[in-house]
Design a protein around this nucleic acid. Structure first.
Length: 462
DNA sequence: ACGACAGACTT
DNA sequence: AAGTACATGAAG
């Protein structure tokens, strides 16, 4: 599963340093025990000395260390397993969210509704390692990024990456990357100041679309934006903070500035932002398939990413407040909601902003300040209660039992919070309008498994 | 389902 | 000489 057998394509791609294959496979060099990206500027090794891997972790667990020039650990994520294997995929997602930082494998398996045995098996089959090893590997990669790009001390890096002792951090780094933290940092000169990180993507990235979409829906107090950047407040576990994001098209990355009051959440928060801004979307694949289906029918936007919402609760509330009203009215309702119930947070240079209200707060207070049908207020309260009583409120399919929440809302939340790539928003008024303008009805089935992207391409026509 | 053991983790 | 920063062995 881990080593690629079809060498021909890989050989051609690496000799041409073809950027389209960046993140798709990795070159492990047996003579040096180093692994590289297809685009590595170093002179190409002899074909007989290389081994091709389909993921960075596969090369790492085979004993190779990441190249210091092309930094294979910062390559965009491979997407071979996207869309398939929901338990496995959700497991990966939860690990990125820090599930194994505090909880055990058993806890994770339980949340997924499978046995811990089976969870191990899924990881072994798909990645060739155990869930815990993957989590540590992932933490090491993040630590490496911090060592390269931030001015944090090595001790701070250890805790920010989710380790609970420096001792263990050093050991894990040596084991996973065959480099000590010091060795990694030595190669870089870092500028002190605010914490800035680079999120690499495979171009193109339709950043302007993303920015426009978010700007049209900005909730004052919670979010703010200018011509280049988007910012908002966030909460993750016990940590509160805010971030700003802008594009660096020239170097194929988004620039992220984060502030948190508890940096043990930095890794999960960063991963969440990656997911929300769809940094790892395999756009080349999506674009060829969708463009073929929609040939000449619409003004197709290449590199479109689906802008997400911070978490499913916020997505749910926004969707409910948007029922039966215009986008503009929905925004003013959400703004009122945040203003009334959101906790305050101080943002450097901008004064006081608001956090999105937590379910606990919503349950506690009445929603009398809202001028809208009582039934919709009740729905919001029921959603909040669901978050407090349900073991796994992020399982959006279960929301169907909540009175006042229908299939449209569920699908909408799946697209924008769960980042499900294959949701078709059937019955949406905007989608119906967009379809009416087409010369021929598109074959929705043919756009699997990227129907969420079809939805957004069509919305973009309005 | 259970115990032995390995190795992950903290101090 | 004392303090800081990092790496690592020993023990539980």
């Amino acid at each position: 599963m881990a080593i690629i057998q079809d060498r021909k394509k890989c050989e051609r791609a690496r000799k041409a340093r073809d950027a389209r294959f960046d993140g798709v496979f990795f070159i492990a060099v047996k003579t040096t025990n180093i692994y590289c990206r297809p685009i590595c500027p170093a002179g190409p090794p002899l074909e007989k000395n290389v081994e091709y891997h389909d993921s960075a972790i596969s090369a790492a667990s085979a004993g190779y260390r990441p190249c210091l020039r092309c930094r294979p650990d910062s390559a965009p994520l491979s997407s071979a397993w996207r869309g398939t294997q929901t338990s496995f995929h959700r497991g990966l997602e939860l690990i990125h969210q820090g599930a194994l930082q505090t909880g055990s494998i058993q806890d994770l398996a339980e949340r997924l509704g499978i046995s811990d045995r089976y969870l191990r098996e899924l990881f072994e089959k798909n990645l060739g390692t155990s869930p815990k090893k993957y989590a540590i590997y992932q933490q090491c990669l993040f630590a490496k990024q911090l060592l390269h790009e931030s001015a944090l001390s090595i001790t701070q890096v250890a805790y920010s990456a989710g380790f609970n002792s420096v001792r263990r951090f050093n050991e894990a780094m040596q084991q996973q990357l065959s480099l000590s933290p010091r060795q990694i940092r030595k190669s870089d000169k870092i500028v002190a100041g605010k914490l800035k990180l680079k999120l690499y993507y495979r171009p193109p990235y339709a950043w302007q679309h993303c920015l426009d979409f978010l700007q049209h829906r900005v909730i004052a107090g919670l979010e703010w934006s200018d011509t280049m950047s988007y910012s908002r407040t966030i909460r993750h576990a016990d940590a509160k903070g805010y971030f700003t994001l802008q594009n660096n098209a020239k170097h194929n990355h988004l620039e992220l500035m984060v502030h948190l009051d508890d940096y043990t959440s930095l890794n999960p928060v960063t991963q969440r932002i990656r997911a929300i801004f769809d940094v790892d979307a395999p756009v080349a694949e999506i674009d060829t398939q969708l463009a073929r289906q929609l040939a000449g029918q619409i003004d197709y936007l290449p590199g479109l990413r689906i802008p997400g919402i911070w978490d499913s609760f916020e997505a749910g509330v926004r969707a409910i407040l948007g029922q039966q009203v215009s986008v503009r009215q929905a925004i003013s309702l959400v703004t009122k909601f945040v203003e009334e119930l959101g906790d305050e947070i101080h943002v450097d240079g901008l004064g006081v902003k608001k956090l999105f209200p937590a379910p606990e707060t919503v349950v506690e207070y009445s929603l009398d300040f809202f001028r809208m049908p009582q039934s919709r207020k009740d729905t919001i309260r029921r959603l909040a209660e669901h978050y407090l009583s349900d073991e796994n409120p992020d399982d959006i399919d279960r929301w169907i039992d909540i009175k006042g929440i229908g299939p449209w809302t569920i699908n909408y939340v799946k697209i924008r919070a769960s980042k499900d790539p294959d949701v078709w928003l059937a019955g949406d008024a905007g989608i119906n309008n967009a379809i009416k303008k087409l010369s021929a009805e598109p074959n929705i089935e043919q756009t699997k498994p990227w129907r969420s992207y079809l939805t957004f391409q069509l919305w973009n026509q309005l």
